[in-house]
Amino acid sequence: MGKFLQIRVSATTYDPSEVQRAWPRLFGLVTPNRPTPPHEPEGVLELVDALWDIVHYGDLDKTVKTTLSPFVEKALAVKEQLDNALAERRASQADTLTYELEDILTDMERVAPKI
């Protein structure tokens, strides 16, 4: 890094509309519980945070919370690993973690209730 310039490595969702198409049940769980529309487009990382919020603080059936909780905890842990890999400029590890995170969301989608 230079004296004035800072190098940043980040992960963003290329097309946020694809998140809703890929995981419609999960998106449906978090969307109606938002008091106001989000200020920025929803992406994969934002979905993980919203799922954590709804499972821990939302008005979901206890069985649904119990079913989704292990997936949400695992997704949040992988998201944190991804953040750390990006901060340490380990692009290869970050790439691997993005696939792992998407796989967790896909597995969670299979067990999520239809909304």
Rank of each mutant, 00 (worst) to 15 (best):
T31L: 11
V72C: 09
F27C: 05
K114T: 10
V72A: 10
V30M: 07
A11S: 06
E88F: 06
A85C: 11
E100S: 12
V9K: 01
Q93E: 15
S92P: 00
E100F: 00
T63A: 15
T98C: 02
F27L: 05
R25S: 03
I104N: 03
T63E: 15
T63M: 10
L29S: 04
K65W: 07
G2P: 09
I115Q: 12
F4T: 13
Y57Q: 15
K62V: 14
A50L: 10
T66I: 11
P38A: 14
A85I: 09
Q20W: 06
N33W: 08
L26N: 02
H39A: 11
K74F: 09
V72Y: 05
V44N: 02
A11M: 01
D83T: 01
E18Y: 05
S17F: 00
T31M: 10
L29I: 05
A77T: 07
L76M: 11
E88T: 13
I7K: 14
L29D: 00
D49L: 13
D49C: 09
E88K: 06
K3N: 13
L47E: 02
V48Y: 01
R90H: 12
G2F: 04
P113K: 11
S17L: 03
R90N: 15
T12G: 04
T106K: 02
V111W: 11
A22I: 00
I104E: 09
L97T: 01
V9S: 04
T98A: 01
A75Q: 08
D53L: 14
A91T: 10
D61L: 13
A11N: 01
Q81A: 11
T13H: 02
Q93W: 00
A50K: 03
P16M: 02
L82I: 04
R34S: 14
K3L: 13
L45G: 03
V48H: 01
L97N: 05
Q6E: 03
G28K: 05
P24K: 01
L68S: 12
F27D: 00
A112Q: 09
P41G: 04
A75M: 13
L5E: 04
I7Y: 13
Y99R: 03
T12V: 05
K62T: 15
A112R: 05
D53A: 14
E102P: 00
T96Q: 14
T13V: 04
L97Y: 02
V19H: 03
G58L: 02
E40C: 00
H39E: 13
E42Q: 12
M108I: 01
E42M: 14
E40D: 11
T66D: 14
I115L: 12
R110H: 14
Y14Q: 12
R25L: 08
P70R: 02
Q93R: 06
Q20S: 07
V44K: 00
E80I: 12
W23D: 06
R34A: 15
E18L: 13
V48W: 03
S10V: 03
D103Q: 09
F27T: 00
Q93L: 11
L5F: 13
F4E: 05
F4R: 15
K74C: 08
T12D: 07
T31C: 05
E40I: 04
R21Y: 06
G43P: 03
R90C: 05
K65S: 13
E102Q: 13
V64S: 11
R110C: 09
I54P: 09
S10A: 11
K114A: 12
P32A: 13
S10R: 10
R8W: 00
T13D: 03
T31E: 04
E109A: 09
